[in-house]
């Protein structure tokens, strides 16, 4: 029962924190790593190939951040979730469970806002 409650605390914290951290990672451009699929290269941290190359040549080494953003949010969520397993049950009960679906909904809205420029072109 104790481990079930601890896992529940972990799950509810993880579920609330991951969307928030993911949106923060999107807006602040914090990818744990950057993937260059055409080069078969993975680099730690956020890198923009156009920082060092001619912008017109950017297509030669397209970069991917989704894996890194996901890793950033997941790691943060894991850390927060594990921390939640260490605190007494009453602390998390006081917070209620509404935020566990409200925060993902807000995260979805944040992602839509982030992508709006594609629809204004």
């Amino acid at each position: 029962m104790t481990s079930a409650r601890a896992f529940r605390r972990f799950a509810f914290t993880f579920g609330g924190v991951v969307p928030v951290l993911y949106v923060v990672a999107l807006f602040r451009d914090i990818a744990l790593f950057t993937v260059y699929p055409s080069l078969g290269l993975v680099m730690l941290g956020t890198h923009h190939s156009r920082d060092v190359a001619d912008p017109a040549l950017g297509f030669l080494a397209p970069e991917m951040y989704w894996y890194g953003w996901t890793a950033t949010a997941t790691l943060g969520g894991l850390a927060a979730g594990l921390a939640a397993t260490l605190v007494p049950d009453r602390w998390t009960q006081r917070l209620g469970s509404v935020w566990v679906w409200v925060l993902p909904l807000l995260g979805i809205l944040g992602c839509v806002y982030f992508e709006l420029p594609w629809f204004r072109r």
Binding site: F7, F12, Y22, I108, E115
Partner: peptide
Amino acid sequence: IGLFDLKEHFITIGLGLLPV
């Protein structure tokens, strides 16, 4: 492109929600 980017974002939010 925007619609597909949203797909990838939503999938990650879903990953976070999976344990809950």
